[in-house]
C-alpha cells in the first residue's frame, strides 16, 4: 500500500500528470536499460536511477530555461528529466553513433549543451567544483541562471566538496548542491562512513544554508527546490538540499546489493515509492481516472521501446570517430 497522500490543494492536475509521466519515463527507461544490459547490448558500468525519480523531476519543476545541471555517473534520470531525447540517451548506452556522445562517452559521460546538461562524470565528487564553476560563469556573465549540482552521500565525503562549499559561499555563487542521499555509497551505508547525522548540516561550517527533504515526494522536492532557487537567484549564494531517497537496484548492474536486506528495500518500495505517491494523489483525489493513467503508461512504454529500437539499430560509430573530438 502506498502512503496515504496528504491533501495538496495547490497542485494542479496537469502538474501532477506531468510529474507522473516524467517519473514513469525514467523508471521504464531504466528498466529497459537493465534489460538491454542483460542482453549484452549495453556494456561496462550502468548505474540505474530507479527509486530516485522524484528528485530530478521535482527539481526540474523548480527550474527555468537557462539553468544548468551536472551530476555523477548515475545520470540517465537527470538527462531525461531535463528534456534530453530518450533515443539519444539509450543509443549512447549501447555505444552507437546516434547517442548523445556519438557512442564515445557511454552511460557515465553524456552531455547536452542545448539542454544545459553538463555531464555525466565518473570520478566521485568531481562534478561538485565543476558545477560551482558553471555557476561562476553565470555570475561572471551577469545572468540569473542557477546550476543544480547533484552528488550522492558517498561523494559528500570527498574533500573537494568542501573546497567547493568554501569558495561557493565566499563568492556567492548561484549553485544548488543537491545531495541525493540514497543511503548507500556503493555498499557502504552512511552510518559506516560518517558520524555526521545529516549531510546538509555540514554546510553550516561554510555559512551555507540547507535542509533535508523527503526526496521520495516530488511535491516536497519541488517546494524545496523553489526555495533554494529563489535564494540563489536573489544573489545570496549557494544552498544545500539533502534529498532523502533510495535506490531500488544495486549500485551498478554488477552489484548484488547484499549489504542491505530484501525487507528494507521492499518496505521503501511499498511505503515510499515516488511514482505510486503521485498516482495515489491523482486517483484518490479524483483528478485522474485509471484509464487516463493507463494511457500515459502506454505512451511511455512506446517511447521507451522506440528508444531501445533506435539504440539497437543505430550503427556503431565509424572507425574514423576514434580520432575526432580530441582537439577543438
Amino acid at each position: 500500500m502506498a502512503k496515504k497522500p496528504d491533501a495538496r490543494p495547490n497542485v494542479s492536475k496537469d502538474d501532477l500528470l506531468k510529474y507522473y509521466r516524467e517519473m514513469l519515463l525514467i523508471r521504464r527507461f531504466e528498466e529497459k536499460a537493465g534489460q538491454l544490459y542483460g542482453m549484452g547490448l549495453i556494456g561496462g558500468f550502468c548505474h540505474l536511477y530507479i527509486g530516485q525519480e522524484a528528485v530530478v523531476v521535482g527539481l526540474e519543476a523548480a527550474s527555468k530555461e537557462g539553468d544548468k545541471r551536472v551530476t555523477s555517473y548515475r545520470d540517465h534520470g537527470h538527462m531525461l528529466a531535463c528534456g534530453m531525447d530518450a533515443k539519444g540517451v539509450m543509443a549512447e548506452l549501447t555505444g552507437r553513433i546516434g547517442g548523445y556522445s556519438k557512442g564515445k562517452g557511454g552511460s557515465m559521460h553524456m552531455f547536452s549543451k542545448e539542454k544545459h546538461f553538463y555531464g555525466g562524470h565518473g570520478i566521485v565528487g568531481a562534478q561538485v567544483p565543476l558545477g560551482a564553476g558553471l555557476a561562476f560563469a553565470d555570475k561572471y556573465l551577469g545572468n540569473d541562471n542557477v546550476t543544480f549540482t547533484y552528488f550522492g552521500d558517498g561523494a559528500a565525503n570527498q574533500g573537494q566538496v568542501y573546497e567547493t562549499y568554501n569558495m561557493a559561499e565566499l563568492w556567492e555563487l548561484p549553485v544548488i548542491f543537491v545531495i541525493e542521499n540514497n543511503q548507500y555509497a556503493m555498499g557502504t551505508s552512511m552510518k559506516r562512513a560518517t558520524k555526521s547525522e545529516t549531510l546538509y548540516g555540514r554546510g553550516v561550517a561554510y555559512g551555507i544554508p540547507g535542509e533535508q527533504v523527503d526526496g521520495m515526494d516530488v511535491l516536497a522536492v519541488k517546494a524545496a527546490g523553489e526555495k533554494a532557487v529563489a535564494h540563489c537567484r536573489a544573489g545570496k549564494g549557494p544552498y544545500i538540499l539533502e534529498m532523502m531517497t533510495y535506490r531500488y537496484r544495486g549500485h551498478s548492474m554488477s552489484d548484488p546489493a547484499k549489504y542491505r536486506t530484501r525487507e528494507e528495500v521492499e518496505k521503501i518500495k511499498t511505503e515510499k515509492d515516488c511514482i505510486e505517491h503521485v498516482r495515489d494523489l491523482l486517483t484518490q483525489g479524483g483528478l485522474a481516472s485509471d484509464e487516463e493513467l493507463k494511457a500515459i503508461d502506454k505512451d511511455i512504454k512506446a517511447i521507451v521501446n522506440e528508444s531501445a529500437e533506435f539504440a539497437k539499430e543505430s550503427p556503431e560509430p565509424p572507425n574514423a570517430e576514434l580520432w575526432t573530438d580530441i582537439y577543438a
Binding site: A132, G133, A137, E163, N166
Partner: peptide, 23 residues
C-alpha cells in the same frame, strides 16, 4: 583577477566548469 583560497583541486574544478559555461 580572482584570489583563491589554498585549494588547488577545488579551484581547478571550478575553473574547468567555468570554461564550459562560456569563460
Amino acid at each position: 583577477v580572482v584570489d583563491t583560497p589554498i585549494t588547488e583541486m577545488g579551484f581547478a574544478g571550478i575553473a574547468t566548469g567555468a570554461s564550459w559555461g562560456g569563460l
